[in-house]
Design a protein around this nucleic acid. Structure first.
Length: 588
DNA sequence: GATGCCGGGGG
DNA sequence: CCCCCGGCATC
């Protein structure tokens, strides 16, 4: 469809003097890329992009890691492509990487593979291939095989290199918001279902040497395990127990985790790019924030789509598959859960709260704070907090299997980061609404956060979960998705906004958000008249005083999508605008 | 001429 | 229903 549009647009562009085509970076790329999308041509500039967004990972220890390094690079590039290619990516990436490691010099093969990345079959194939190998055992992380310490040490370098790849993969992986969701859920389930594994994990870690941030480690490990597991699920061929990771790796994992979370913030943007690889990459991941505008544009579409619920126990790899992978077989779609909306909110929340990915990269401590009214307990592990919530607040004694992830909503992740200002916290910040001010110049957050305060009642499920930033985002998601009037706050000036642009798009009008019936505290006036304005207009329109039914809308004087985004970013317009209908986003 | 958007039409 | 677009009113 995009293709179609694009095509059309391109023609249009020509008609109009090629405005479209001349769009900064993305447009051309788009044009070029789109046609060959399915096969995903010979990696549109995979090289540079990956480099840029790759987290500063410590190079594979010792020297002379030529091979591994190369493999890493290969892997690096693959995730990129995969990134666009959807969640397979992770799998793919993994397998590819594996292969790479297994036979370093086989790169050509890998390269070829890259081209047809979205075929699941492919994956399988790859996997098999890998399996037969011998070294892959240690190389492939997903094989959670308890490697002998000695071995691990020996293979240090290789693993390190691998790490890079894996991290990327993970990052990529997380591009799907649901993913995270599921992740958390899984985390929980995992926690209960695989206590042993975890324990073992920790133990091993100890042995290795890292005792320090045990909590975090555990956490990270776990998350990774989860990821891995996920993957496992996807690639059912590989059945492997959790792998051990050296403290260093774990550290990296930490970073990874952070990045993962971070990535989620931008994920919406990056996600849809299946269509235009370059954009996604350069857009949100590029360090310097390459071509931001595009990023948001692309993401605009599909990200919120999959309200795809994450069943704690549903090993559904499909996650966002539906969101934008047409050719993927309709995998077992996780059945919608009762707290559907909530979940979604969560996701979106996560999506938005951390607008600046790169900052995340920096070392940061992740804590989990209980959001329960008067609790505020802070734990260092998600598991811990979850448990806490589950038992203390939710009163779920036999925390057995019933962990639907609800807990997720009652705690927030606090990132104690030296340099990553409060941005991350801004939205998540559970306790201090004031913090929310830290976030972008936009008004939304404070609002929502304030809302939260009152609603933090013991009202268990209903509102509490949505408190904090969720509401806003949720709203956003919904509306945006539905192309309702969710005005991404007037994007500064032109169609170009920083990667954080996404954060800007948080709707500032809470009114419509009827979620959970928390009457938006009357106290807070709508930041920008828009809300009111809108309402006014509404009333006026709905009850036209004059006999002559104003057939035509007066014509909004406010900015419209066209103005705001410009023709070049037509895909960022609200649907209505695109269809030459009354703008829904910038109503006035 | 550029915009905003209604009405109508194709798939 | 989704998506476009001709065409008209308005800027």
């Amino acid at each position: 469809m995009q293709a179609r549009r694009l095509a059309k647009r391109s023609s249009l562009g020509s008609r109009r003097g090629g405005a479209t085509l001349q769009a900064p970076g993305p447009a051309p790329a788009k044009e070029g890329t789109l046609p060959g999308l399915p096969p995903l041509g010979p990696g549109p500039a995979p090289a540079p992009a990956p480099e840029s967004w790759r987290p500063p990972l410590p190079p594979p220890r010792s020297a002379g890691t030529g091979p591994p390094r190369a493999a890493g690079a290969a892997a690096a590039s693959s995730p990129v492509l995969l990134l666009l290619g959807e969640e397979d990516e992770d799998e793919e990436g993994g397998s590819r990487r594996r292969r790479g490691l297994g036979r370093v010099e086989e790169k050509p093969r890998g390269g070829a593979e890259e081209e047809d990345d979205d075929e699941e079959d492919e994956d399988e194939e790859v996997v098999v291939e890998v399996v037969d190998g011998d070294e892959d055992e240690e190389d492939s992380e997903e094989r959670f095989l308890p490697l002998g310490p000695g071995r691990a040490v020996l293979k240090g370098p290789a693993r390190g290199a691998l790490k890079v790849g894996s991290i990327k993969r993970e990052m990529t992986f997380t591009f799907q918001p649901e993913d995270l969701k599921r992740d958390s859920n899984k985390k929980m389930s995992h926690q209960h279902l695989f206590p042993l594994a975890m324990e073992e994990d920790v133990k091993t870690a100890d042995t290795k040497k890292a005792n320090r941030v045990l909590d975090h480690e555990k956490e990270n490990t776990r998350s990774i395990c989860l990821l891995e597991q996920k993957r496992k699920v996807v690639s059912s061929n590989i059945d492997v127990p959790p792998a051990r990771k050296s403290s260093e790796e774990l550290d990296m994992d930490k970073v990874t985790a952070a990045m993962v979370l971070t990535s989620l913030s931008t994920s919406p943007l990056v996600r849809s790019p299946p269509v235009r690889p370059n954009e996604g990459l350069s857009g949100s991941w590029k360090e310097g924030g390459g071509v931001p505008s595009s990023s948001s544009s692309s993401g605009y579409w599909s990200w919120s789509a999959p309200s795809d619920q994450s069943n704690p126990s549903t090993p559904s790899p499909p996650l966002s598959a539906d969101s934008f992978k047409p050719f993927r077989s309709p995998a077992p779609q996780p059945q919608p859960q009762p707290d559907d909306g909530i979940d979604e909110a969560e996701a979106s929340n996560l999506l938005f709260d951390e607008p600046i990915p790169r900052k995340r990269k920096n070392s940061m401590k992740v804590m989990f704070k209980c959001l329960w009214k008067n609790c505020g307990k802070v734990l260092s592990t998600a598991a811990g907090i979850q448990k806490h919530i589950r038992t203390i607040h939710l009163g779920r004694v036999g925390d057995s299997d019933y962990s639907d992830g609800e807990e997720d909503f009652y705690y927030t992740e606090i990132k104690l980061n030296t340099d990553s200002v409060a941005d991350g916290l801004s939205s998540l910040a559970p306790v201090s609404p004031s913090q929310s001010l830290a976030s972008p110049p936009t008004f939304p957050i404070p609002d929502s956060s304030r809302t939260e305060a009152p609603c933090a009642k013991t009202e268990t499920k209903l509102m509490t979960p949505l408190s904090r930033s969720a509401p806003t985002t949720l709203y956003l998601v919904h509306t945006d998705h539905a192309y309702q009037a969710t005005p991404p706050v007037t994007i500064p000036g032109s169609a170009k906004f920083t990667p954080n642009g996404s954060s800007f798009s948080i709707s500032w009008q809470s009114p419509p958000v009827t979620f959970t019936g928390i009457p938006v505290s009357p106290t807070h006036n709508r930041p920008v008249g828009t809300g009111e304005q809108r309402q006014h207009t509404h009333t006026v329109l709905s009850s036209p005083p004059r006999g002559t039914v104003s057939l035509r809308k007066p014509r909004g004087e406010g900015k419209k999508c066209r103005k705001v985004y410009g023709m070049e970013n037509r895909d960022m317009w609200c649907t209505a605008c695109r269809w030459k209908k009354a703008c829904q986003r910038f109503t006035d």
